[in-house]
């Protein structure tokens, strides 16, 4: 336990009043920071002081603060969600930093994630990728018994590994190409690994990739930065799996339109 000790930090924070205005870095001292604070609690403290001084507090997205909602996310010293692996910004604690450190905080940068204000970005492109095909088309009420279709444990486990994605966008932020392949492949793999997802498997991958491209994400050049930044440790192997599915679906569905949009 590190109770009692406090740290003095210097923050360089990207401030941008709105999506259409110019932004810049502003330096803030952050004295008396407890190592037991989470990174966002540190920002809370800085904001409370800014409000007391009559300044506009730093806007940042956050909600559950337990690493599962995927709402928080920012570049901390050039790393998505900061230096600790498999950890979201809200679960990063200040004990990961040293007294006297300078911390640069920037929003996710991608054409598909326009800045809304300060560190807040618009990630609805992810929702549109899901809307294009990231589902099983089943009507409420039409389901057979839960045990009617056995699912091998290994398939269920692997699907769960992929389904653990929280949609925070760290993969896009960390990718040198701002590619959304890890996010898209996680959903393609989650549903593609399960028997329930087979009927729409080809259409799903074609439509989701088409939407991903339309949204203006970059392409995968296999750097692996996404996997390293992912707070849920989604693996690169899912990207390979999506490539495989995409190629196969492309060859099998030559005649059909592979545009984006929901299925009927």
């Amino acid at each position: 336990m590190s109770a009692g000790k406090t740290m003095n930090l210097t923050l360089h924070v990207w401030r941008q009043p709105s999506g259409t205005s110019q932004g810049r870095f502003v330096t803030y001292p952050a004295p008396d920071i407890s190592p037991d604070m989470s990174f966002l609690e540190m920002l809370d403290v800085v904001n409370e002081r800014l409000i007391a001084k009559g300044e506009d507090p730093i806007a940042f997205d956050h909600d559950c603060r337990e690493g599962i909602c995927g709402m928080c996310g920012m570049m901390i010293n050039g790393q998505a969600h900061g230096p600790r692996r498999a950890t979201t910004a809200c679960q990063l604690h200040m004990r990961s930093f040293e007294d006297g450190d300078t911390i640069t905080i920037e929003p996710w940068r991608a054409t598909a994630f326009p800045v809304v204000k300060d560190l807040v970005v618009d990630r609805n492109a992810f929702d549109r990728i899901i809307a294009a095909g990231g589902f099983v088309s089943t009507h409420t009420g039409s389901a057979p018994d839960g045990n009617a279709i056995p699912v091998p444990k290994t398939a269920a486990d692997q699907a769960m590994d992929a389904a653990a994605c929280i949609g925070c966008g760290a993969c896009v932020a960390a990718c040198p190409n701002a590619s959304a392949m890890l996010f898209t492949s996680a959903k393609v793999s989650h549903l593609g690994l399960l028997p329930q997802g087979q009927a729409e498997r080809d259409q799903r991958v074609l439509k989701m990739v088409a939407t991903m491209d339309e949204e203006g994400f970059g392409t995968c050049t296999n750097h692996g930065e996404c996997e390293a930044a992912c707070p849920k440790e989604i693996r690169l192997e899912f990207i390979a799996r999506m490539n495989r599915d995409f190629i196969r679906a492309g060859l099998r569905n030559r005649g059909e339109r592979a545009g984006s949009g929901g299925t009927g």
Partner: peptide, 18 residues
């Protein structure tokens, strides 16, 4: 039943049942 049909990856036994 509904959630399984949607593809919710519930934990499974080795035999493939929930």
């Amino acid at each position: 039943d509904q959630c399984v049909a949607q593809g919710v990856p519930f934990a499974r036994e080795y035999g493939g049942v929930l």
